[in-house]
Amino acid sequence: MSLSRDEVTQVALLARLRLEPEELETFTGQLNQIVEFVAQLQELDTHDIVPLAHGVEVRNVFREDLRGPSLPREAALANAPKRNSESFLVPAVLE
């Protein structure tokens, strides 16, 4: 299994990464090494093995439905790169 440059371009787009042509070249090579390394697992016969849904063998962890305080708005908005008096601001998203 080998990743093409187009696939890496697509993955970069989904991760919102802008890659220069030479970076694309480097990362395609590196990503392929990683995929090949992991691909060794495919040598194992996993036919009768139930897929692992979680790494920890714990089930049914719940909290009770109790309400605590909310953050003050100023604290909630404190780290926003851009904001107005009541909301986070993001570049216009047009539907």
């Binding site: 439905d65 109790l66 309400r67 909310s70 953050l71 909301s87």
Partner: peptide, 21 residues
Amino acid sequence: ESKMFSACGTDFGLPPNTQTD
């Protein structure tokens, strides 16, 4: 009473960003 993963409230119609954690 509270959100799915935390103790934050779930009321409708509050001023923006006053119901977060």
